[in-house]
Design a protein around this nucleic acid. Structure first.
Length: 266
DNA sequence: AATGGGACCTGCGCGC
DNA sequence: TGCGCGCAGGTCCCAT
């Protein structure tokens, strides 16, 4: 479930842990997670390269290498990067200069690793909407007014705005006091502003606390993110709203769980 | 254009 | 106790 705050945390952790190190050997324990090129080419392209730069776009991690290629990692739901690693159940083990191992773990094998000549040309990258931190209020208002869809699934649409997932969509809408079923173009001017503020506030706070350790998310050190204790609605169905004590409701939108307070969010 | 569903996976929690 | 089932969600893909 890593979303923008979790992936940003991992990016910052990686910068401290492995930036500048050389990849001396790559052991692929499960080739399923390597999407391109084939395993042999993947290993050949990585071995001997140095990790020159680490970036994040939406929920995608990008490791730019000294040989001009880039390793992109999408953790999807259960992907983890752990350093120093060496776990038996890792899917890919990156041996680094200094003798330690960067483990890529992924229980459910949804994650996607790619070694690319140019990550900018990745279709996923080209279709991404703006990063929340680069979003401008006036522009955001226009974007919302063009969409008739329900606001909650719209926040999950990476081509609309990038980086928000199911957990933070719920927390953002709670802070903005907006019902997840509301149509984007029918939000009032004031609500659009509140939403804009909530996106920035919630994501910033979550990054400050190193993300939310629900399910499998851990930091590169193996430690947990501390934002779970600030969750107001996510996974709290049946429990009292922390503001008004009304029972938090869970509904399904687009096949995904939506959590909200029916009284606070109108 | 918008919406819904299935696919990809596996561990967990639930009901019986 | 044990089994089988549904569920969790990021993204893509297809159908309507």
């Amino acid at each position: 479930m890593p979303e923008l705050p979790e992936v940003e945390t991992i990016k910052r952790d990686l910068e401290k842990a492995v930036l500048g190190k050389k990849i001396t050997e790559v052991c692929v324990h499960n080739p399923k997670v390597i999407r391109e090129p084939a395993v042999a080419g993947f290993k050949r392209g990585l071995q001997g390269a140095r990790i020159k730069n680490i970036l994040r776009r939406a929920k995608l991690l990008i490791l730019e290498l000294s040989n001009g290629k880039s390793l992109t990692i999408h953790l999807k739901m259960t992907g983890q990067l752990v350093y120093p690693g060496g776990a038996k159940n890792s899917r890919v083990a990156f041996h680094l200069s200094g003798g330690k191992i960067l483990d890529f773990n992924d229980q459910r094998l949804f994650a996607e690793l790619r070694l690319l000549d140019d990550w900018h040309s990745l279709k996923f990258i080209q279709r991404l909407g703006p990063e929340p931190a680069e979003l401008d209020l006036a522009q955001f208002k226009v974007m919302l007014s063009k969409k008739k869809t329900a606001i909650k699934p719209l926040l999950l649409d990476q081509t609309f705005i990038s980086g928000i997932g199911n957990l933070y969509a719920a927390e953002i809408l709670f802070q903005a006091k907006i019902n997840p079923l509301r149509r984007a173009n029918e939000l009032t001017n004031k609500e659009k502003e509140l939403l804009f503020l909530a996106i920035n506030d919630i994501l910033k706070a979550a990054i400050l606390h190193a993300g939310s350790s629900v399910d499998d998310y851990v930091r590169v050190s193996g430690g947990k993110g501390g934002y779970v204790k600030y969750h107001k609605v996510y996974d709290r169905q049946g429990k009292p709203c922390l503001v008004c004590k009304t029972m938090i409701k869970r509904i399904s939108q687009g096949g995904r769980g939506t959590y909200f307070c029916p009284k606070c969010q109108r």
